[in-house]
Write a protein that binds this DNA or RNA. Structure first.
Lengths: 210, 210
DNA sequence: CGCTATATTGAGCACTTGGTCAACAGCTCT
DNA sequence: AGAGCTGTTGACCAAGTGCTCAATATAGCG
């Protein structure tokens, strides 16, 4: 006794939304076809009608998560500061965005380690990471050109890799221990490390106050 | 028809070794009691005799992995260089050690995301991370004291958090894309970022050559 | 030698999983 | 109205899971 019919695309979206809810709650290990069906208020078989297999569902979910995850640093609002400051600011914005997305980040990391064994997942994640790095290249490129004598042997790509790697490390920490992860202190430290000139004191004071 | 008997401790170790092999090969998701038993050439029931439950096995494995993972930076061989250089050197040694331990690192990250949902695992990982950070504090402390005017608002703890976070980000990258992770380029970039003075040119040249 | 404590086995249970499939309901088109 | 495609269902299957347990071989002890 089938229920109401719905256009295929819409159902797919519903199911993906349900899958996302399940996956952020119970991780990839808890992402069973039955759990998704139940979450969507739908029969088990329907999941296979729309995604053919669990693997199809997982990959579709990964695509969706990667699509809706903003990976390009927001270069807007760059009010004519130095290139290095702009780069720092982009990193800071990425880090600041992590805590509020804790479960999404945890899910992404779960996909990440899944990619270790699953070629399709690995390809997708590698591409997403590559895009992320590339999005940083204009910033890192400008930063290096602004004082090239300070960065011997540093390429825009290597600097972008270090910058994004840093953000990814923060992501890991946020996932494991969100309470301990002190964003302002982190940013103050980062600034002091990287900047030659006096760092942003407003930020430093904010950090000390918390 | 029971097989040869072996003292309890020894069997436990054998089983844990087998579990480690299975887990580095198939991740935590593939760590079933039967897989471990088979890997150890032993019956399924024996796993429960020694670990009571799968959870007991997993936790014992986690303990073993954390124990045998050297988390304290090796401060030996510090031939009277500046504190900042010593700190950098410790970070570099940790990063250099990552590629050869790729599957162990991947397993640790798997535990890491498991800790998101499992309190016991979380506790253990948080402790290990805390120990790791603390092990860096002497180095970061010395570095800050060596030129305090350069690090306003930076505490030994926050600097240790940034340093270890950086290493953890590298760990993620190594796990996902070991071929793309260019260790020398990474280290050169890190040095150029942090150091005021001219960075280690030997290292820079090595990076450019590869 | 026999006895007892202790490892060890493997069959078996209850349950979950991914996946299949025949049946069936709703929609559109003629 | 009837045909036909399409979305939907729920029962079903085989495989795999964690876990239990009576049976049993072994080692150590008297």
């Amino acid at each position: 006794m089938p229920g109401p019919r719905i256009p295929e695309d819409q159902r797919r979206d519903e199911l993906l939304a349900a899958a996302y809810r399940v996956a952020t709650r119970d991780r990839l290990g808890g992402l069973t076809t039955r759990a998704v069906a139940k979450e969507a208020g739908v029969s088990n078989g329907l999941v296979f009608f729309h995604f053919t297999s669990r693997e199809g569902l997982v990959l579709a979910l990964l695509d969706r998560v990667l699509e809706t995850t903003v990976l390009s640093p927001d270069t807007a609002g760059s009010d004519a500061r130095s290139p290095v400051l702009q780069l720092l600011h982009a990193i800071e914005r990425d880090i600041e965005g992590l805590p509020e997305n804790r479960d999404r980040v945890a899910l992404l990391i779960d996909f990440w380690v899944m990619g270790t064994q699953h070629a399709d997942v690995r390809t997708r994640i590698q591409k997403a990471l590559g895009d992320y790095r590339e999005a940083y290249v204009p910033l890192t490129s400008a930063a290096i050109e602004s004082e090239p004598e300070r960065y011997p042997g540093v390429t825009p790509e290597s600097l972008a890799a270090v910058a994004t790697g840093f953000v990814e490390g923060c992501a890991l920490q946020v996932v494991m221990d969100p309470d301990r992860f002190d964003v302002p202190a982190y940013l103050t430290t980062l600034r002091a490390l990287v900047l030659r000139e006096a760092p942003g004191y407003a930020l430093a004071c904010r950090a000390r106050a918390s």
